[in-house]
């Protein structure tokens, strides 16, 4: 039990760090992708496509074993955090982009007709409307990140999944331990879902 709780703490740490980093990096990538300048859209697009179309596990091995081989050895925790952030920032960038693009053209034209500047239109019209639309898909992505931290057990980051597996090898109470671990994940992801739902309800804007 104590080792499972210890693992849960590490899972939560990893998730919180990866979510924060991916939210920020995703915004940078989304803005680059929407900038309309080839020098920025091309690398942003290449990053998103290469992250979305390769497995997290392979990226993780590349960071952990690949960088280690050329003398840039990172700790398992840091390697995992980098891989988690890289993969999920690509997904989050796409969520932001979808949200911004879903704001109707007429909204932007109305802003222009009122004599607003490009920046004002972005900050006062596009961003607030896009914000509410990205909350539900972001919630899904947060859950995905929390679940994906389990993959880091493959390089022995001592998070929940890894602790569960080690405990089951030591005690042979495999059934009970894995069900326990599953319940831990279920509780964490349920809390996230519940929190975003109530957030959505509180900040819902009437259309």
């Amino acid at each position: 039990m104590p080792s499972l709780l210890e693992g849960t703490v590490i899972t939560l740490e990893l998730s919180a760090l990866a979510i924060t980093a991916a939210l920020i990096l995703g915004m940078v990538i989304a803005l680059a992708a929407l900038s309309g300048r080839k020098a920025m859209t091309l690398p942003a697009g290449a990053f998103v496509q290469s992250m979305r179309n390769t497995p997290l596990l392979v990226q993780l091995y590349l960071v952990y074993f690949g960088l280690g081989m050329i003398g840039l050895g990172l700790s398992a925790f840091l390697s995992g955090l980098i891989a988690l952030t890289a993969q999920n920032s690509a997904y989050i960038a796409e969520i932001y982009r979808g949200g911004l693009q879903s704001v109707g053209r007429t909204q932007i034209e109305a802003g222009k007709a009122l004599g607003m500047r490009r920046r004002e239109i972005f900050e006062l019209i596009e961003l607030p409307q896009a914000f509410m639309r990205v909350v539900p898909p972001l919630c899904n992505q947060f859950i995905q990140i929390i679940k994906d931290t389990s993959i880091l057990s493959a390089i022995a980051v001592g998070e929940l999944m890894h602790q569960g597996k080690m405990l089951s090898e030591r005690t042979a109470a495999t059934y009970e331990i894995f069900i326990m671990v599953g319940l831990f994940y279920l509780v964490i992801t349920s809390i996230v879902t519940f929190a975003t739902r109530s957030f959505e309800r509180r900040f819902a804007i009437a259309h």
């Binding site: 859950i143 679940k147 057990s153 999944m161 089951s168 894995f178 994940y185 279920l186």
Partner: peptide, 21 residues
């Protein structure tokens, strides 16, 4: 349940857990 639980856990459950039963 599936939405809240990692695939890896289910794979471990099948691979290490089920043989016990």
């Amino acid at each position: 349940v599936v939405r809240g639980v990692p695939l890896l856990l289910l794979l471990f459950f099948m691979y290490y857990g089920l043989p016990y039963s």
